[in-house]
Design a protein around this nucleic acid. Structure first.
Lengths: 143, 143
DNA sequence: TGCATGTTTGGAATGATTACAAACAACAGC
DNA sequence: GCTGTTGTTTGTAATCATTCCAAACATGCA
C-alpha cells in the first residue's frame, strides 16, 4: 500500500486517540479528498478495494471519534446523511439543489471565530447556503 | 377548538397551495410555537389530541410542501432529524450540545441577505452555532 | 504469561423519512 | 344533481443512514 501517512499518526495521537491502522487510513483518505465532503458510506466503499476487511461500523466509530476530537467536521447540510471534511481553515459551504454537490465558499464572516454569543459558549460555527452552482446554472441556461 | 386562523388560509393560498384543514392546523401550530423548532413527530403528537385522524405522512407531506413554498424553514442542525420553523425574519441558531435545544440567535450577519456568491445563485442562508446554552452552563457550574 | 483496556467486526436493531395504492374531497362541465 | 379530474390524505410497508451489541482482537503493562 502506497500511503504518505507522514504526520497523520502524530495528528491522531495528539488528540488523545490511539493511531490504529484503520484510523490512519481513514484520515489519510479524508486528507486526500479535502474538497469532496464524503459520506461514511462513500469512505467505506473507497477503502474496501484496498482494505476489504474494514467494517462500516468502524468507519462510523472512527469518524465520530474524529469529530469529537475536533479533527474532522461533520456537515449536516443535506438532512439525509452526514458529510465529513478534514478540518483545515474555517469556511462556509454551498449545497447545490440540482446536482447535490457541496462546494467550499471562502467568504468574509465576522462570526466565524467567535467563542461566545449572548452568554452562550460557542464551540463550532457553521455557515451554509442552498442554491444552484455555476455548472448547473449553465446547463439550465442551455436548455 | 380555539384557533385564531386569521390569515393563515390566505397565507397558504398565496403560495399556490390549497388551504386544506390539515394544512391550516399544522401551520397554526407552527405559528403558535415559533421558538420551539419542532420535529414532524412532535407536531404529529401535539395534533393527535385534537385531531386523532391526522396521519404522520400528512404531517411530512404538508411540511415538505411548506418548505418548497418557502413558507417554513427546515433546520438540519442535529443531523438526526429535521426541525421546522415558521419563517419570519432571517436569523441564526445555536444548538446546545447538552440539552439539545435549538435557540434563536439575533446577530449581525453581512451574508444573511445575499442572493448570489461567487456566481452561484443563493436561495437560502443558514448560520448556526454548536455549543452550550446558559442554563446548561449554570448547571455545569453548580456541580 | 496473563490481565485490563480500548478497538474492531458483522449482524441485528432503531428511527426518521418516503413510497405506494386506495380512499377521499373539491370543483368544473354537463 | 351527476360525473370525471385533479390534488390530498391515509395507513402500511419499505428504505436508508446510523447505532447497538456481544464476541473477537490488539496492545501494552504488571
Amino acid at each position: 500500500m502506497i500511503t504518505n501517512n507522514s504526520g497523520l499518526k502524530e495528528v491522531i495521537a495528539s488528540r488523545g486517540l490511539k493511531p490504529t491502522a484503520q484510523r490512519i487510513i481513514i484520515l489519510d483518505h479524508l486528507a486526500r479528498n479535502m474538497k469532496k465532503h464524503l459520506t461514511a458510506e462513500q469512505i467505506h466503499g473507497a477503502m474496501r478495494k484496498k482494505t476489504p476487511m474494514l467494517s462500516l461500523t468502524t468507519v462510523y466509530n472512527t469518524l465520530n471519534s474524529f469529530v469529537d476530537a475536533g479533527l474532522v467536521t461533520a456537515l449536516t447540510i443535506t438532512g439525509t446523511e452526514v458529510r465529513y471534511e478534514y478540518t483545515t481553515v474555517s469556511h462556509h459551504h454551498l449545497l447545490c439543489k440540482h446536482c447535490g454537490r457541496i462546494i467550499d465558499i471562502e467568504i468574509q464572516c465576522p462570526n466565524a471565530e467567535r467563542k461566545s454569543i449572548n452568554g452562550y459558549r460557542v464551540d463550532e460555527v457553521h455557515g451554509y447556503f442552498k442554491g444552484v452552482c455555476r455548472d448547473c446554472m449553465n446547463k439550465e441556461h442551455n436548455q
